[in-house]
Nucleic acid binder design. Structure first.
Length: 112
DNA sequence: CCGTTGACGGCGA
DNA sequence: ATCGCCGCCAACG
């Protein structure tokens, strides 16, 4: 089994109703510290892609500010709320509660 | 080849 | 807990 995974492969594993941070994705992809590159890679993802790009948010638990327009930020939030993710009054997600806990090859398999 | 930019993150103030 | 600065790295011009 290859330990190497592409950013997109990691994002594809994020289950519905869960979120992951850019840094988390980078770490899981085997490239800790490349959070910024993850965001850069996400910018190349087309809307009709099967990659759940909207489930990737920043470490503060908020939808990142992109350059270009507010439209996508709003869309991202709507998509997340549609999955049951809640935003507080400051437009932030409670990470301890909604952050995706990646599966471990411990022997105990049984999530989602 | 070099300087700037950017869906980020950690750390210090 | 919030704000700002600096560090990382690949893509662009």
């Amino acid at each position: 089994m290859s330990t190497y995974t592409h950013y997109y492969d990691v994002v594809r594993r994020i289950p519905r109703g869960r979120v992951a941070t850019y840094g988390q994705v980078a770490h899981l992809a085997g490239l800790p510290g490349r959070a910024r590159q993850v965001g850069y890679a996400m910018s190349a993802v087309p809307d009709d892609s099967d990659i759940p790009w909207h489930r990737v948010i920043n470490a503060r638990g908020e939808v990142s500010d992109r350059s270009g327009g507010f439209a996508f930020e709003r869309i991202q939030r709507v998509l997340l709320e549609a999955e049951g993710i809640a935003f507080d009054a400051r437009d932030r997600v409670d990470l301890p509660r909604f952050r995706w806990d990646p599966p471990t090859n411990d022997g105990s398999a049984a999530e989602n």
